[in-house]
Structure formats: C-alpha cells, structure tokens
Simulated scan of single mutants.
Amino acid sequence: MIGFEKRLVSKVLIFEDDASAQGKLKALCTELGLIGLKQSERSSMQMLQSNIDLGAVLISESSSDTAEGLGDGFELARRIHQLRRELPIFIRRSGRDDLDDLTPDEKVGIAGVYDIDKPDSLKQLLDQYLADTEYPISLIRRMEEVTHSSLNALFRDIEVSNELPYLVKDKLTYGDILSLLPVEAPWFSGYMMIQAEEQPMLGLIKDGRTAIDSATVDFRDVMGMLSEITNLAWGGLRTRLLALHPPTLDDNTRISVPITVNQYKEYISFGTDRSQLCFKYTLRDQHHRLAPVTLYQKFIFNIRWSPEAYLAADENKVEDLVQSGCLELF
C-alpha cells in the first residue's frame, strides 16, 4: 500500500453477514493495518450521514438494511454511494469476481469486486482506491464539497459531477491551460493546481454561463475564469480548515521548493516523489448544447504534510461514535 513516512491506520466500514467471511476479514484487517468497523443495530444510513473518517466500505452481496428497506448488497451500495460519493465500495460476491451480470444502474458506486478466499483481490483494490492511506477522508470530503460549491457559484445551468478521488505518481499535465496556487494550512504546505482544456471552457463563457461579458471573449477570459475557480475553491477550503485550528506564528512556512515545467512534454515536477491527490470534475450543460468541460484538481503537499495533526484537530472522531453506540469495533 502507498504510504508516507508515518503510515496512517485506515478505517473501513464492513457489512458482512457470513460468519466464515467475518473471521477471514478480521485477519486481513490485522494484516493490512486496517481498523474494521461494523454497524450496530441501528440503520447504516444514520451512521453514514455523520462525517466519520473512513477509507472504504466493504459489503457482501447478501447484506441488507431492513430499517431502510434495502434487500441486498447492491441496493445498499447504491444508497451508500448517494450519501458518501467519495467512499470506494468493494463488494464480496459468491462464485464470481466481476460485475458483468449487472445492469449499469446496479453497478453505480461499486469500485470493485473481491473474493475473500483470494486475499490479493482485496489488497489490489485497497492499493488502488484507499486514499485514506495518505489523506484523511474528512479532508477529501471538504475539498470536494467546497470545489462543488465554487463551480456551482461561478457557472449557470451546469451540472457538476466528479469521479472517485485518486492518487498519481506521474507528473503529467492535462489540457492546455492550468492555474497554480500555493496552499498552506497548519498541517500542510504545497500547491493546488487546476487543469483544463481551453475550447470547452471558452464555449461556456461565450454562451453566457458566467458573469463575464460574452460579447468579446478571448483566451484571457478563460485564464481569468480558471483563476477564479482556483481562488474561490482554496478560499472556501482554507476558511473551513482554519475553523478547526487557527494558525499561529509557529505555523508559518518559509521553505521553497523549485518547480520545473516542460510544456512540450506536458510535464510538471514539484520536487517531490509524494503522490498527488487528484479530483476529476465534469461540468455538463443542462440544456445539452455545449461540450462537457473537464477539470482536474490536484493537491501536491511537497513542502509540509502532517495528517496526524489534522486528524487531531478534526471534530469528527470515530472513538466518539463507538462510545455512543452508533458503531462497534468489527
């Protein structure tokens, strides 16, 4: 599993009704450094509506939630995906290791399938999707929520969607325009980068979907809009983060790291081998006249990164939910 110098323990929520599978999952959680949590007698939806820091959800296809009228694991997965889009959902199936027999609606929200008798199938999914290994999920949720709000505030008559956040090791850029902004909070220091293609963004502006005068639009307006997205997203996120822990004089960071760019090769390096935390957003025209706009948002904490300090300041503690009876240790 990918990890920083100080590897964090990740929490996964488990819905498993088979006793044999439960025993095997317990052993896997111990091996992989995971804290397995299971829902108590209350409805699973009540717990998931809280901002508990999770890395993933593991569901068996025979799981159910009678309190919510959910008859199987696929219905449960769809409901969980509606509530917590950022959480990858892994489903355990009996007798098969794919989703080929399901309809597109039944597949929504399911990141992958695992076989409890083939531990590597679960390990591969965890390595691919478990962002909590490096980044607390509550921080990821704040990034997504603030960016969604910013995009909806800047564009009219568009629908914003995004895929599961992911980590990359490569240093390639997307599109032909990008905005780069230094970001700093008490727990990290680095950069936020927004990347896009110019022409689809230009189409939205020319069609009057922004506050920019659509009569005389050129590339400068596109660059200005990209800067607005960057500033608004970071401003909202910084406000929410500083509400957890206001900065002090000791929090100031004065270290610099060289940034190198090769525009011909579409390559950018921030002087670190750490993974970049990536979000892919798609802006779709509600009137179906314009081409979709794809935005890639990347966080690169290349100067300072202290997830332990962030978790200590985060107001949503899993221990509090266990003590209250909403959760039980698996």
Rank of each mutant, 00 (worst) to 15 (best):
E5K: 03
K6A: 12
I14A: 15
E16Y: 02
D17Q: 10
D17E: 13
G23K: 07
G23H: 04
L25H: 01
L25V: 01
K26D: 03
C29W: 05
C29Q: 04
T30W: 14
G33P: 11
L34W: 09
L37W: 10
K38S: 13
K38W: 12
Q39P: 00
E41P: 00
R42D: 14
S44F: 01
Q46I: 09
S50I: 07
D53L: 03
L54F: 15
L58A: 03
L58P: 04
I59T: 06
G69K: 15
G69H: 14
G71I: 01
G71D: 02
D72F: 04
E75G: 08
I80A: 07
Q82R: 05
L83S: 03
R85M: 12
P88S: 00
R93D: 03
S94M: 00
D98G: 05
L99R: 00
D101Q: 01
P104R: 01
D105W: 11
E106A: 06
A111G: 01
V113N: 06
D117N: 08
P119R: 15
L122D: 06
K123P: 04
L126R: 05
D127C: 05
D132F: 14
E134N: 04
Y135F: 11
S138A: 12
R141I: 08
R142F: 12
E144M: 08
T147P: 03
T147V: 13
H148P: 00
S149H: 13
A153Q: 15
L154G: 01
F155E: 12
R156Y: 14
D157R: 07
I158H: 08
V160S: 05
S161W: 08
S161G: 04
E163G: 03
Y166S: 09
L167V: 07
T173I: 11
D176E: 10
I177T: 08
V183M: 15
A196L: 01
E197W: 05
Q199L: 15
P200R: 09
L202V: 02
G203A: 12
T210Q: 11
A211M: 00
A211R: 01
D213P: 06
S214R: 13
V217I: 14
D218V: 08
D218T: 10
D221W: 15
G224V: 10
S227D: 13
I229Y: 13
T230P: 00
G236T: 14
T239G: 05
L241H: 09
L241S: 07
L242K: 05
D251A: 09
I255D: 10
V261H: 09
N262H: 07
Q263F: 08
Q263E: 13
Y264Q: 12
K265D: 15
D273I: 12
S275A: 06
F279N: 03
Y281A: 02
Y281V: 02
L283W: 04
D285Q: 04
D285V: 04
D285E: 06
Q286N: 08
H288S: 11
I300T: 06
F301C: 10
W305R: 02
Y310R: 11
L311R: 13
A313I: 00
A313M: 00
E315D: 07
E315R: 08
E319M: 07
L321S: 08
V322H: 09
Q323V: 06
S324I: 11
G325Y: 12
C326N: 09
L327F: 02
E328P: 07
